[in-house]
Design a protein around this nucleic acid. Structure first.
Lengths: 203, 203, 203, 203
DNA sequence: CATGAATGAGGTTTCATTCAT
DNA sequence: AATGAATGAAACCTCATTCAT
């Protein structure tokens, strides 16, 4: 009696193990949802369709997101953060990149998330979904404008703010066209028109 | 059958009278649907909401349209036909309008259907609804391109087809921006950038 | 041509016909719901169970009630209105009924809605359902108290208000006991104790 | 199996130590559940809400209780046992307490578990939850009745059984009123009416 | 041509419970 | 003993569409 004995006991998973599992599930849900939202549209994609495609129970989604719209919002946020990060990484601090490089880095960034870009834009036009995408487009737009303005200041262009606004507006048009037609000739035409114009103006 | 019927002395209406009645009902349904679709989105607008707003019974819609999606498609078609017609009316055959006039006629046309334009574009981005809008945008685009090309030929510009394509692409960007931001400064900036560029090029 | 012809046309149902149909459906839904709520409790009774028992599609309920809780509230209101009406009908204006008659009319009223009374009381104790029942019990209680006070004033009892409050409280206890034990000996004991006491006090 | 295990040198805890740990967990679960059930109702309180409030994992509950309903039943039983014990402790064997003291001890007992009393009563009215509460109320009632009867026998009252039943019924009404209105004026009115009546009768 | 009650399939969401660790 | 991710059944509810009149 009172002898020390060896015994096998179950150890609950550690915090890290749980974190890993959660991250994996969360990730597959978002990935699958993005895929289906993009392919079929937000409204036409049901939770159960996502669950089926992801190979999980429908209820599981609600362990990670407050609801369908929250899932969408989280996807949008993540994608826009990715985009901003990507663009920043493309542009060197020194030497100052010229305007063509800036534009192309931006377009390349969008191209890197081609599949989801169309979804993001479509959400922006749907009054019944949310304003999140619109806000993110706004943030992205502002971010671009600041880069353009900084560039124009360095180049000594007069009215740098107004010029930056104009360029931002044109780029905005390109963004939308891109969503509509993919990496088509149309987008390249727009790009070339813009860049040629700017170069002709000596910028 | 135990059907509630009534024997009536039936004074035949002329085909025209019938058509008039039908056209009136059809029209109010489409008008109301367009209004609600634009305000709240296609998916968020229910048939009964349309019926209520239009002051008719929900079932009546099915006398005129195959279903909700058919209603949408018919609206889209009508709006695009309206737009094409409008633009054509704005442009005189003689004297040959210059490119600025052509562009502005187009923008004015879109402005005349401002409220529904955003809906049309949003539909274009929703793969689950229909490809009709995309097709119509395509037709519109082609129509514009032909006008541009004709103009360029007359003006003796070289590569008229390619130039027309470029212009069409830029206009496409403007159309989309317009849907996104309404008649904002952004759209005017785009328009001015385009026209200025073209004029500087001597077109 | 242009000859008058006889023809059979369908006539839509009249407003009255629709009203009749609606009233019938509404009634069967409420009746069935009351039955099941009383038998199994509010939370344990699902909409689909009600629909099945009533022989209708589950969705139909939502043509008549905003939701499950609204259905409950409407039932409660109706039952309490019935009760108040019943009690009033039992009591003659002249000659002034004595206190025993008043009490018995009230108890008889509750007895007439025996099956639902338990449900009403149970709802009153469920913090997660609604305060409607509590409010209705309050209204009923106040109504009774006014009757008692009026009686005591006529009889020339001193402190009629306080006496009415005391009697109301005792009756309240009886109401609750009734809900708990049905028309058992317990309730009659309570009733007799109350009436005997009052009579012994010469009221 | 790919089970995460650990070989441990197992220092056996004494049965008492184990019991202590178990009792502590069991106790916090019951306490928390009672609190939430009382505040929000049984159906509106989820297992995970209890777990969160108690600071434990949801699954742990199932080590101690068969399920949610079992947890409820165990809580009810414990509370009623507490109540019976409390009332007994309040009443001295000698000298024989008079009827007012007996009544007040009972009411004081209920007052000591004020917060849970309403829950217990509410459960009593919910046929879908369990009959346990009803049974316990029955047991409590019987217990009281025996005390009353014993008292009446000692006092030499004629028909002690019937008198005890009557008093028990009145007390039952008070219990329920108490649940409904808390320690309000209404309950005191009931109590005073009862005691005054009994004293006037010389009991 | 017009009505609106009724259907029924499908949607989102909740949550008690299980189970590998 | 304890963890919490995952399940799956069932809940409430919406709404396009049908159909008897």
């Amino acid at each position: 009696m009172n002898v020390q004995t060896k015994e096998v006991v179950y150890i609950p998973k550690s915090k890290e193990q749980f974190e890993e599992i959660r991250e994996k599930s969360r990730s597959i849900i978002m990935k699958t949802a993005l895929k289906l939202f993009s392919a079929n549209g937000y409204h036409a994609t049901s939770i159960s369709a996502i669950a089926k495609e992801a190979g999980i129970a429908a209820g599981l989604m609600y362990n990670y997101f407050k609801g369908k719209e929250d899932l969408l919002v989280k996807i949008i946020e993540e994608r826009f953060l990715d985009l901003n990060r990507y663009i920043s990484e493309q542009l060197p601090d020194e030497p100052i990149p010229d305007i063509g490089e800036i534009i192309d880095a931006t377009l390349k960034g969008i191209d890197s998330m081609k599949d989801s870009w169309k979804l993001l834009i479509s959400i922006m036009f749907q009054p019944d979904v949310s304003q999140i995408a619109t806000e993110w487009i706004g943030k992205l737009s502002l971010h671009q404008q600041e880069i353009y303005e900084k560039y124009y200041v360095i180049k000594g262009i007069k009215n740098p703010k107004e010029s930056a606004q104009a360029l931002s507006a044109v780029m905005h048009g390109i963004f939308l066209s891109y969503a509509h037609s993919g990496d088509s000739a149309e987008v390249r035409l727009l790009r070339n028109t813009v860049i040629k114009t700017l170069i002709e103006k000596g910028i």
